[in-house]
Amino acid sequence: MYDFAYQKPGSLADAVSVLSGDMEAKALAGGQTFIPVLKQRLNKPSTVVDLAGLGLSGITVSGDVITIGAMTRHADIASNADIKAKIPGLAHQASLIGDEAVRHRGTMGGSLANNDPAACYPSALLALGGTIKTDRRTIAADDFFQGMFTTALDQGEIITSIDLPIPEKSAYEKFRNPASRYAIVGVFVAKFASGVRLAITGASQGGVFRHTEMEKALSANFAPDAIAGIVTPADGLNGDIHASAEYRAHLIGVISKRAVAKAA
């Protein structure tokens, strides 16, 4: 890595001021993406601003919303009793991320801010219709993701927590990349009284997206068969040495059915 300055501010305001005052400063959460990037010298921050001192971790339930602090670790999400009971799809999703070491360092805020097109959480946030809270505003899931590695966050803006509405049913099904074990296709499905939302990660060149045709069919009939005939076109999907766009298009159908079967 290149040399950089390190700061661990004790208040959100301080962190925001360092990050906003310096275009080259960058936030550090669990470091499970950022540190490998630094080690490969693909990023040259002036100051690394560690968010660990801001008290941003924790999981609380109020009414029909679960609020997860941005610095909450994957392992804590996977093992939290409330999440397991109320959004089992999310607990399961967190348990599938990386390995033990990654899950004990990586955070939900870091993953969402990074918006890797193969990351898991973006599908949960989008399918649950959650809301991102930052140091300055709230951003609806539908507005947050803006293409791979791109979000609605401004320079220096810090995610503080994530609000996730509790669905009636939820499930995550992941088809892993055989090498990285990230998602080649990951499907999060959430059934609410108002209808079904289904989001797909890993597959599209544009990053995570909602499959509205499937959502419509599932809102009418929440069963795998309801989406059995839906063909997803390969246009705009990723193709790489692991999976062609056609394979991903096919997997979207298979994995979505399995997610629904698991939730139903």
């Binding site: 990349n177 090498a179 040495i241």
Partner: peptide, 11 residues
């Protein structure tokens, strides 16, 4: 080399 890391070389 397309499989130049564990992101792309499956073990």
């Amino acid at each position: 080399l397309l499989s130049g890391s564990y992101m792309d070389y499956a073990m």
